[in-house]
Amino acid sequence: MAEALEHPARPTAPTSRRSVSIYQPTQEGLVFPTEPEFATFAEERLHRKQRLVAACRAFAIEGFDYGFAGHLTVRDPEFPELYWTNPMAIHFAQVNLSNLILVDHTGRVVEGAYAVNRAGFVLHAAVHEAHPDIVAMCHAHTVYGTAFASLGRPLEPISQDAAAFFEDHVVIRSEAGQVAVEEKAGMKVADWFKGVKAAIHQNHGLLTASRHSIEAAAFWFIALERCCRQQLMVEATGSKPVLVSPERSRYSREHVGSEYIGWLHFQSIWDHLTRSQPDMFD
């Protein structure tokens, strides 16, 4: 347990993975999260699995559970054709290291005792296989994201938070409203994830993908759900919101909408969860 609770995300990040951010302190000697580096695949695998569990627990806190619906995945660092995911029919709040499963692109469980969610396999496996650069992906049947998805349109830049998704998300209309249990449905959805971090699947809900980390994918999912809620609240007033201009939206997206910023946001969630839910690492 003590080994699992260590915080390996404090060493100096390798130059190749570091993203420049206006939030990184210029003053030396201050405590600030840094991206980790790994000596072995085993170290990186443990790191990814721990953060996957934490992302599931964060989804539980946010109330993103809906029966067995919802799946989060992260690619294995040594065997990129395999990915780790939460087990079928286990509540987000009960996901831990010991019940994660390792799955291939055909939906075969190669490690772990639990079954894989068929819909999760169809969507996530298709995206992971079609886009080797995508490291992690998140989907859940949330209240506001699902409601907003029924409108079949993108988010508007009504705030700095929403501007983080400006020109960085798509609306997918393929297979809208139909449960994705056939592999051809997954392939139709996968095509849309070129160069964006999020998608609104019409009549279905929200999906996020990250080329950086499971932490980034999870945080941007939480943020996207929040933005959908805010836009629905604004529209419920009957008044037309003042939109952030395209130029300012792009500026905000660049500085507060990057993969690195998503990872950085998640660090406070990680620290909170490691202290409040140590059973994550059972």
Rank of each mutant, 00 (worst) to 15 (best):
V95G: 10
E247N: 04
D104Y: 01
A13W: 00
Q231P: 09
P11Q: 02
V103M: 07
Y251F: 11
A54N: 08
A209F: 05
F64Y: 15
Y260A: 14
T26E: 13
H141V: 02
F219Q: 10
L72R: 08
T12I: 15
H105K: 08
L46M: 14
R57E: 11
R275W: 11
A147C: 10
D76M: 01
H272W: 12
K197E: 12
V109S: 09
C138I: 04
E35I: 01
T274Y: 15
A55H: 06
G145W: 13
G177N: 07
P241Q: 02
E43F: 02
W270P: 00
I214Q: 04
G120H: 12
L264C: 08
E28F: 05
Q230K: 11
R48P: 00
I134H: 01
V127Q: 01
H201P: 08
P14A: 15
T12N: 06
N117P: 04
T26M: 08
F166N: 03
N99D: 06
Q94W: 04
A162D: 12
G177Y: 03
P132E: 11
E81A: 05
H272N: 06
R248A: 15
V116P: 06
E167F: 00
A190R: 03
V53E: 06
D76C: 05
C228N: 13
P25W: 00
R18D: 10
H169I: 07
A218L: 07
Q24T: 09
S245P: 04
S19T: 15
K197C: 04
Y114H: 15
W263N: 00
Q94I: 00
C56S: 13
E3F: 00
G262I: 00
V256P: 15
Y114I: 01
V20C: 03
H272I: 00
H204Y: 08
G107Q: 06
R48S: 01
L123K: 09
